[in-house]
Amino acid sequence: MRQYITRRLLEMIPVLIGISILIFVIFQLAPGDAVSAIVDPKTSAETKAKLREQLHLNEPILVQYKYWVMDILKGQWGESFYYKQPVSRVINSFIWNSFYLSLASFLLSAILSIPIGVLSATKQYSKFDYIFTIFALIGISMPSFFFGLLLIKWFAVDLKLFPVSGMTNPGSTATGFALFKEVMHHMALPLIVLTLGSLAGLMRYTRSSMLEVIRQDYIRTARAKGLREKVVIYKHALRNALIPVVTIFGMSLPGLFSGAIITEQIFNWPGIGPIELQAVNTRDYPLLMGINMLLALLTLLGNLIADVTYALVDPRIRLK
């Protein structure tokens, strides 16, 4: 197993280099650059040329790529054109906020969706199943910007139960548990929006995978030998049904860090989502590269984790 993981990790290096070249070229091919985004009567063509020189934007793609690689080797991932600060610092100041929110939503939807999925499957075509299927469809089709505003209207403005937006109270100096409480209070509404959106998918996955498993011969055997229904479902069926679901969990690792652009924007959650969008608009290549490389790395790691957990939950799979 250890050998397998080491091999996979080493394989990531060439893949990441390939990805970096690909992303770099794609961004460079987009029309305009960080300097052409500055349109200002106080910025003459001359000044723009100078800025381009300073940022190496006037050089061929390969040379620019070389500069980028050199920045990576120096650590800090280069300097963001827009923020004038090291990319690592920019990413660091936003990504954890996104992570907390996404992680909470991920855990919540996992806790809710698996039991609901299992119950829907075991009671297929029952009222319970229909109610949650409809609920899932609503959740998946509800636009988050609309649902978010609706929640703000109901719970923040009318009932005054939760704050309208933000992550902490303005000017708050809370620390420790008080800070945690404050953040949870602010997180409630965006958490509902995000969870409702992702709940449906996971729930349906669990349901269909469970349905498939309970039709298998060995489940019938288990029942035939007189095991109680609970043992059949939760001990024999569930474990097998979860195998495909585990893959989905592994794959959602990059999602935990990539931020939810729309939800974060509506609730003014200081996450990385809106920052990414802005980096595209301002053609901030170093920042874009930084974020995308990080996500690429997380995707690869997520796949690896999925494969390893696969082996852990399914004894038939042997990793070499």
Partner: peptide, 21 residues
């Protein structure tokens, strides 16, 4: 004594203002 510049957006600015935040 203290000034706070709080990030708001076009979606929620009315709510933030009218609720006194």
């Amino acid at each position: 004594k203290t000034i706070v510049m709080k990030v708001t957006n076009a979606n929620t600015v009315v709510q933030e203002l009218t609720s006194g935040n």
